[in-house]
Amino acid sequence: MRKLQIKDKQQLISTIDKNRIFILFGVIFLFMALFAPRFMNVFNLTTIMRTMSLNATVAIGFTLILVIGQLDLSIGTIITFAAVVGLGLKESVGFGLSVPLAVAAGGVVGLINGILVAKAKINSFIVTLGMMTVLQGTIYTITGGNSISLSTPDAFAISDWLAEMFFPLLTPRVLITIILVILASFGMRRTRIGRNFYMVGGNSQTAWLAGIDTDRYTIAAFVISGLTAAVGGILFAMESAAATLNMGNSSLMYVISATIIGGTSMAGGKGGVFKTFVAVLTLEVLYNGIILFGLGNEVKIFLAGVILAAVILYEAYTSYRREKVLGQRPELMKELERDREAAAASSS
């Protein structure tokens, strides 16, 4: 009986641990729903969804990058790059061609990152840091320092269409994001290719020995990261009907924070797209509530930092604890308990 209880308690803790992002989301959402003025209405919730769209899309690829145990610091500039390419080419080739080109551009940047990481074996932190600088320069050069806007009726039409709520909480852009999240989440969990990414991140040596082409998966992860960043960027730019030269800059730190808060570990092999998505939603609900309370960005930055720090500390502390008890022998623990009981019995 006793043993069962201990097991249940441990199970409870591990279940809570695994689902902590959902609980965090629930708590923050409930708090805002109860106390934040004008929070619970269709319009505001749709606003949250709309704002979340960019970072949620970008975070799909970034989660994949963390799952394979790498880092991609260039996602922020890829967002901008895709936006600039997509909108800049629209005049000459139309959206029908410029949007795929923009997405492809993101993919190409990811491909270069991936090849440098997988084949040239340079640390991804360095490759993507360098790529960030290169891309920023490229963006400024091809635009001549000029943001791009599309103030034509067809551009406005697409922009309006993307932003229009056709169902509570859903706009086409949000729907695209959600579809991508569902596809990626399902693919990562249920397909062999998806599981292989985890294998590569969990132990690339094992993966390679199991006949998984780790280089190809590493490159693929960077390409997907580039693609999702580009998709996020171009959709965002189309809805804004403009591409500014730093529109993606704030996404980098945001996406890193959200992915970590969502429970994906920097060490690789752990985490999931859906959890990251919920983490993005959580942050977005929090930020939205802060604005509704009339509080400033300083509160927002501070709270985001505290939550992130708490999550990291919690995770570090659990693995610190786990290391302490790793290898404990159950029969000896039982023996200890028997001794204690005996001692208690004899003293009473």
């Binding site: 062999r192 599981r195 292989n196 985890y198 294998m199 991140g201 969990g202 132990n203 040596q205 094992t206 993966a207 020995l209 199991a210 006949g211 998984i212 570990s265 060490a267 690789g268 092999g269 752990k270």
Partner: peptide, 23 residues
């Protein structure tokens, strides 16, 4: 081949390790 040093992916499940590459 069974390797001298463990070649298992630690965060992954036993099943995924055993069936690596042939899920």
């Amino acid at each position: 081949m069974i390797y001298q040093e463990l070649s298992l992916a630690y965060p992954l499940s036993i099943a995924e390790n055993v069936l690596a590459g042939r899920m």
